[in-house]
């Protein structure tokens, strides 16, 4: 049977790679060290497949057609595209998708009560390219991205995201063969983007989130309402839905924060978290 051999949570703010110069060097280096340690552990786990819990930033899904959850069925992903490479300061590269696994997720989802949307054309932005530039700088196993609506409310509830992730975890573990799967969730933690509070970071809330993840106690996070998160974590904090989906896939696992830095210049509370049994 397939096995989940690694799991990690990271922020994905584009300025992490795009504007290193504006951040305080000591903060940047501590965060980058966290990413490097995640990369080392991920490589040691030798995954054959990366399942990524991520979100769109309205570059793909318009207000005329907004899925709560969407499975990527692309043969390849530009992560980043040539156009976005300059902004994120990451070399453009094309990485392999895993559309056959994606199709199997969709079919199993319908049986399990998760009517997931799908897309054969996804323009990926920082949600894939920034974390993968650190976590898989050279060779990238095939990737299966699962997009959750974290940006265009109304959003699926944290509890629903966690349940969706639980389904994905069960699906992966039931796959035949000796496939080694790594899970990566990106986004968060607190940040306010485009609102009147743009630039605010709430470190207290970020630590509260990390503490619960560290204790394998997601329940208080699953009870959060959209309004709770908007107030304490900002509209960018809504991206913790991706993290909660991943945690649903590995019940009982806890997350060790390898780095947490509230980087004002990147307008984001940035973290790297290793999740393990």
């Amino acid at each position: 049977m397939a096995e989940i051999v690694a799991a990690a949570l990271t922020s994905h703010a584009p300025m992490i790679t795009g504007r290193p110069d504006v951040s305080k060097p000591e903060r940047r280096e501590r965060l980058y060290a966290g990413f490097r340690e995640l990369q080392r552990r991920l490589a040691a786990a030798r995954p054959d497949l990366l399942v990524l819990f991520v979100n769109d930033h309205l570059q793909n899904f318009p207000y005329s057609n907004m899925p709560a959850f969407c499975v990527g069925l692309c043969e390849t992903y530009d992560a980043p595209s040539a156009g976005a490479a300059g902004f994120m300061k990451i070399p453009a590269r094309t990485i392999a998708g895993a559309p056959r696994v994606g199709m199997a997720v969709l079919e199993a989802g319908l049986e399990a009560g998760f009517d997931l949307a799908y897309s054969y054309e996804i323009e990926s932005w920082d949600e894939l390219a920034v974390p993968l530039s650190f976590l898989a700088p050279d060779r990238v196993p095939p990737v299966l991205p699962i997009y959750t609506n974290c940006a265009a409310p109304p959003l699926p509830t944290p509890r629903r995201c966690h349940a969706m992730g639980a389904f994905v975890g069960d699906f992966l573990r039931a796959r035949p063969g000796a496939e080694r799967v790594a899970l990566i969730a990106t986004g968060g933690i607190s940040h306010w983007v485009g609102t009147p509070e743009t630039g605010r970071i709430n470190s207290d809330w970020d630590h509260w989130v990390l503490d619960h993840i560290g204790r394998a106690d997601p329940e208080p996070l699953l009870r959060l309402t959209h309004a709770d998160i908007e107030r304490d974590g900002g509209n960018g904090g809504q991206e913790i839905r991706n993290w909660l989906a991943l945690l649903g896939a590995v019940p009982g696992w806890k997350g060790d924060a390898l780095a947490y830095e509230p980087v004002t210049e990147w307008i984001t509370g940035c973290a790297t978290v290793w999740v393990h049994p």
Binding site: A151, A152, V193, G194, P196, G199, N235, E265
Partner: peptide, 25 residues
């Protein structure tokens, strides 16, 4: 007017992308 647009129900990610020059950070 980025604050007014937010108040009127424009998505903040779109406000930021279009009116990037209006933001101090």
């Amino acid at each position: 007017d980025i604050a007014k647009l937010y108040e009127l129900g424009a998505n903040p990610y779109l406000i930021r992308r279009v009116f990037r020059s209006r933001f101090r950070v």
